[in-house]
Nucleic acid binder design. Structure first.
Length: 768
DNA sequence: GTATCTACTTAGGATTCTTTCG
DNA sequence: CGAAAGAATCCTAAGTAGATAC
């Protein structure tokens, strides 16, 4: 064990933050390090849904200056308290678990199982509104899964013997399966001798979506796994690879050397030129040094890692050059690891784990202007890991000579293992793959919630428009914020701890400096210009005309404020979500993003798809619809490094094609002249042939040009995120069915696995 | 009401694998 | 066939949001 000294057990808050006692809402930061460098500057058109115009009325102003600000000099977070707190926490958790009915015998039917309908699970009475969904989720009852109740097919409780009704598949799902199942098979023929009531059950394809869901808030009955895979131990550098300090070679102790290699590996990365990164790295590196090293190495600028850097480059080059057999071997080893650790058994089914490897140690790479970039991410040991599994499972064994931090049996959560990370002190989890039942159900549910929003969005929109006129400042702020969230698909914008993360915002945390108001701009009135860094420090830039009333409200909110003050000083996400919850059961700010994304896709597909188009043309339309959503959601990417070049290549092809074309045209002309002169059949034919050639080349050229446009449009837009997280897959599936597009043209294998439920259940007439 | 903790979704970039091109 | 381009997958950071503590 090389890398990790000293950080003992209770790392809940050990080290790091010194920021503790200015927690109040006041935001006086030095503007200094506030996103100077917006890396992405392209303006983007926005998609708006049409809002019916409301008449303007004269505006009565409300003044509300007394903000919520105050300082409280919070003293309650002293470290001494932590131990007690921890104990307390533990006690509470234990109680919680106990009270859950994990162990209640009643639901375990010795052979297969039936999901429980415990008292807590009994559905509550249907509710007002459209009467469409049954249960308001009672505050104290766990959220139940019954949202989508009425959308579901009749449920059957399947036991796993139930050999699936494969036959019910629709044609192209069949296709899909054919080509899909093979790769799968190979990972499949392991016998699962699950300890439980299991049997071989190589579930051909388990249709969890046809089964009952838990309604008592529990996530599983049985859970067994082998624990995580740890990062390989540090391998010291060979003796001939040296580190130089101040020009002289210096042998480092193993711990110091390991951390040095983290830096050395990143030498080519821009990170290592950043001051904060270097500062943080150096500070943490010194912690790993022996006292001797510490006294010698005092200046990072005198450190020369280039030999180490060369070594690693050579290594990766060598890896590439390995022979087929060697590569094969590595592949097999990985496969073995995957088979052993990559799956778990949850409720009688073998499910793929999403991330069964523990994150290796390294240097923290925050995004944007992250104050902690370069800090050392320490090595995670078994002693840091909490294992979660069911009591009656075979517990995972820690590596020889080690212990888990804890083994618990909490079926109210979905994770298999967790640890506390040392940079932010947050908890990391090992969870299942998106194709798993537990993720899939949740995903499905998400879209059902969004569909419920569709049914009442008009009402909600009317309401917030009304609220723009409220006497109460907080209501107006809430209403304007909600308008932005709805219209612009902004994120909610939770507060963040200052100085702990990059300075980014969402709707509720927008500051005065992030918007500009233009009563008139060109031919438009009441234009708001947004310019801020959102999640992942991606810039959001947009100019958008808003309704007069919104504009007036914004002016009001801005009065007497400094640039660094909150725009919505009377609002936060918790207030907003509480309000939304009252408007619709299960409604939160993020549902608007899902809803607007999905509805936009559906509507764009309707608009853009020409039934007579060829398949590639239809797919182009699909991508355009997808792109509309990505633009709405501001999903950007850095233009690929090779972008310019690949564009050039394409352009070259286009040029060639153009030359071909003019050549062909010339020939056509010549042929025509020839024909005119001779008027014979032969020359007439020649003309036709040439004409055809020209036409064909024109088409090819067109295609290339479309491709170029498409690629250019996609330069800094990422389609994947919306496809994976915001677009109800049933819309895409239905579209494919309707137009006879093979589903693989839209979803790759992984995506098909994730969306198996949608592929199985959506028909061509599916409406979001 | 506010701060903190926890669990889980969403996100872009890095890395690896596969296909295409010369 | 090898390199380059492109697609898929991996990785893990950075959000949201609910629960709980204070």
């Amino acid at each position: 064990m090389s890398g990790d000294h000293g950080h003992g057990g209770s790392q809940v808050n050990s080290g790091s933050k010194g920021s503790d006692s200015h927690k109040h809402k006041d935001k006086h930061k030095d503007k200094e390090h506030r996103h100077k460098d917006h890396k992405k500057d392209k303006e983007r058109e926005k998609f708006k849904h049409s809002n019916s115009e409301h008449k303007e009325h004269s505006e009565k102003k409300h003044r509300d200056k007394d903000k919520l600000r105050h300082s409280d000099g919070s003293s309650d977070k002293h470290r001494e308290k932590h131990k007690e707190k921890d104990k307390d926490k533990e006690r509470r958790r234990e109680e919680k678990i106990k009270s859950s009915d994990v162990d209640k015998p009643k639901k375990e039917k010795e052979n297969g199982y039936v999901r429980d309908m415990s008292p807590a699970a009994i559905k509550s009475e249907p509710e007002e509104d459209n009467g469409f969904y049954p249960s308001p989720h009672h505050k104290n009852a766990k959220r139940e899964y019954d949202d989508e109740e009425f959308e579901f097919k009749p449920k059957k409780v399947k036991t796993e013997h139930d050999k699936k009704a494969k036959k019910r598949k629709h044609e192209y799902e069949e296709d899909e399966e054919d080509e899909d199942i093979k790769p799968k098979k190979k990972t499949k023929d392991k016998k699962v001798t699950e300890g439980k009531k299991a049997k071989k059950e190589e579930e051909e394809k388990w249709k969890w979506w046809e089964e009952e869901r838990y309604t008592d808030g529990s996530k599983w009955r049985f859970l067994e796994h082998k624990g995580p895979v740890f990062a390989p131990p540090y391998e010291p550098l060979p003796g001939n690879v040296k580190f130089y300090y101040d020009g002289k070679p210096m042998k480092l102790s193993a711990p110091a050397e390991e951390v040095a290699t983290f830096f050395a590996k990143m030498l080519d990365h821009e990170y290592t030129t950043k001051d904060i990164f270097r500062k943080n790295f150096f500070k943490d590196w010194r912690k790993e040094m022996t006292s001797e090293e510490k006294s010698k190495i005092t200046d990072l600028n005198k450190c020369n890692f280039s030999e180490m850097n060369e070594y690693f480059k050579a290594q990766s080059e060598a890896r590439k050059q390995m022979s087929k057999e060697e590569k094969q071997k590595i592949k097999e080893e990985n496969e073995r690891l995957l088979q052993e650790y990559g799956f778990c058994i949850m409720d009688n089914h073998k499910e793929r784990i999403g991330n069964f490897r523990i994150e290796p140690p390294g240097l923290f790479r925050g995004r944007g202007d992250h104050p902690k970039m370069g800090m050392l991410k320490r090595r995670i040991r078994p002693e840091d890991i909490i294992i979660n599994c069911s009591k009656d499972s075979k517990q995972p064994k820690p590596p020889p000579g080690t212990k888990w931090k804890e083994v618990r049996h909490d079926n109210k959560v979905t994770w298999l293992a967790s640890w506390t990370e040392n940079i932010q002190g947050s908890i990391k989890y090992i969870m299942l793959n998106p194709s798993s039942r537990i993720k899939g159900e949740k995903d499905w549910q998400k879209y059902e919630t969004a569909r419920r929003l569709k049914k009442c969005v008009d009402r909600i929109r009317n309401q917030y428009r009304d609220d723009w006129k409220s006497k109460e400042m907080r209501i107006r702020q809430r209403a304007v914020a909600l308008y932005f969230i709805d219209k612009l698909a902004l994120r909610a914008g939770n507060e963040k701890e200052e100085g702990e993360t990059a300075d980014t915002v969402g709707c509720c945390s927008l500051r005065v400096e992030h918007i500009k108001l233009y009563p008139k701009m060109d031919d438009q009135e009441y234009v708001v210009e947004f310019d801020f860094l959102g999640k992942d420090s991606i810039r959001y830039y947009n100019k958008i005309p808003v309704e007069k009333r919104v504009f007036k409200n914004l002016q009001l909110f801005l009065e007497n404020k400094q640039p660094e003050d909150d725009l919505f000083d009377r609002l936060n996400t918790s207030i907003l979500n509480k309000h939304l919850q009252e408007l619709m059961d299960g409604l939160t700010a993020k549902v608007f993003r899902t809803y607007n994304a999905s509805i936009t896709l559906q509507q764009q597909l309707k608009e853009l798809t020409c039934p007579d188009d060829s398949i590639p043309a239809k797919i182009l339309s699909y991508n355009r619809a997808n792109r509309a959503v990505a633009i709405l959601c501001n999903h950007q990417r850095a233009p690929p490094k090779t972008f310019e070049k690949s564009m050039q290549n394409l352009q070259t092809k286009i040029d060639e094609k153009q030359n071909q074309l003019s050549a062909a045209r010339k020939q056509l002309k010549a042929a025509k002249a020839d024909h005119k002169a001779s008027h014979d059949e032969k020359s007439k034919k020649a003309v036709e042939v040439k004409r055809k050639a020209v036409q064909r080349i024109e088409e090819q050229l067109m295609k290339l040009q479309v491709q170029a446009t498409d690629r250019e449009e996609n330069k800094q837009i990422a389609l994947g995120t919306s496809k994976l997280n915001y677009l109800d897959p049933r819309i895409s599936v239905a579209w494919c069915k309707k137009y006879g597009i093979p589903i693989e043209k839209i979803y790759n294998k992984t995506q098909r696995e994730k969306f198996a439920w949608a592929i199985d259940m959506a028909e061509k007439d599916y409406e979001f």
